[in-house]
Amino acid sequence: MSSPFDGLQEHAEKVKECAWAFQQAVECHVEDRCKSFEELRQEVIKLEREADIIKRRIRGHLPKGTMMPVDKFQLFMYLREQDAVLDAVEDVLDWISYRVKPGIPAELSKDIFLFVDSTIDPIEELSKMVAEARKYFDSFSDKQREVVKEIIRNLRRLEHEADKIEHMLKQKIFNMEMDPVTVFHMIRLTEIIGSISDHAENAGDMMRAMIAR
């Protein structure tokens, strides 16, 4: 039978693929003459849809009696978090698209870039984590387990970094002279961007439960 871990890996690759389009989209949006934002957003939406199909395939095609090295529901919980990362990426772009003009204030653009950059690593780390975890389920070696645990720790660290940027940004937003709509738009945007690494960290925690002895 085809292993559900194949699907998990495939899904993680989709998540990884969206990172580039996401970064480009935000950078483009902040620039003056942005033409490709909508294109890039559609790219992310497409990836999200493809990932959704993979997710449904994994959930729907795991026969009841399937013996796996991990609990079936752990696997599903992990998958849900991994999927939530991609959903959050899509949400960010959706949120930006609701208010293309006047968009992100110029004073904040640098910080937003920094914030977006800080979520790229967590997004990309997931596919590596799945690949290394599969190696662990193949060999059960302590060394391999340590590799996976290190990735999980790294995800936690990255989330912490992103959190710090989020706090800094929110403080800045509230202490700037802006119209309330922009404040609301920016605060909400910050929160959604922040949720990306939150979900990546959650996925890491689920993985930690899966590789527990």
Partner: peptide, 16 residues
């Protein structure tokens, strides 16, 4: 081998 958790997935339904 499946019981020793040696496989990524073992189709028990097919075994039945």
């Amino acid at each position: 081998v499946g019981m020793a958790r040696g496989m990524e997935a073992l189709n028990l339904r097919l075994v039945y």
